[in-house]
């Protein structure tokens, strides 16, 4: 018998269920007066540096139906590519940017919205640049474990072509599922498809 490694095991995930709003965005679902505002509802303020952008989109199931009980979170670097995190050693991120946002889909349309800034370039493990990107995390009723994906920017054609994470994707035909559509000045649409022919690429991070 060898020694035991004695690692603990990560707790198993369970679906966020249909009432995730109660715990995570109570003001959105009408439970007011407990918290002053919903966490993650404001990512930027007047002093935040960088190009203002709005990202909106919907999440579709395998039948093409829009989810109306989804919750999304995003995490991104500031305009210089620095994360507002305790383990960001490359510099100090913009103090007026928290880098994290949370959005429930609209009850009627299912559309989510994030008002943020365009992130800068963050290095990959080997120090080479990754294209500007935003990490997405999606939970909902029927999703047993949160899904991770990334949104890239359509105007960053060269950077996207050199991006080491996109390069990991064997089926190049799927890469467009990670690239948002630019619908106007600073306006992007990023739809997510959970299942089917046009299924979004999800990552095991």
């Amino acid at each position: 018998m060898a020694q035991k490694l004695n690692f603990l095991k990560e707790s198993a995930s369970q679906t966020a269920g249909p009432y995730v709003h109660i715990g995570c965005v109570p003001n959105f679902c009408g439970i007011e007066g407990v918290y002053p505002e919903d966490l993650g509802s404001r990512m930027i303020n007047d002093k935040t540096e960088g190009e203002r952008i709005t990202i909106r989109g919907k999440v579709f199931d395998g039948t093409g139906t829009v989810l109306k009980d989804v919750m999304l979170e995003i995490w991104q670097a500031d305009h210089k590519g620095l994360y507002p995190a305790v383990n960001e050693f490359r510099g100090v991120a913009d103090a007026n940017f928290i880098g994290w946002g949370r959005s429930p889909g609209d009850y009627t349309s299912g559309e989510y919205v994030f008002e943020t800034i365009k992130p800068g370039i963050v290095p990959f493990i080997d120090g080479k640049p990754m294209a500007p990107h935003i990490t997405f995390w999606i939970v909902a009723r029927g999703i047993n474990i949160g899904l991770h994906t990334r949104m890239y920017f359509p105007e960053e054609k060269e950077a996207n072509a050199a991006d080491p994470v996109l390069a990991r994707i064997e089926h190049k035909v799927r890469i467009p599922t990670l690239i948002a559509e630019r619908t106007g000045d600073g306006e992007y649409t990023f739809d997510i498809v959970l299942q089917g022919d046009n299924e979004t690429v999800f990552f095991d991070i």
Binding site: D61, G62, T63, T65, L67, A140, R141, G142, I143, N144, L147, V165, R168, I169, R174, L194, Q195, G196, E199, T200, V201, F202, F203, D204, I205
Partner: peptide, 12 residues
């Protein structure tokens, strides 16, 4: 059933 990805997750 309809909210589960069918394709493999991409490991990174």
């Amino acid at each position: 059933v309809v909210r589960s990805p069918h394709k493999a997750l991409i490991s990174m």
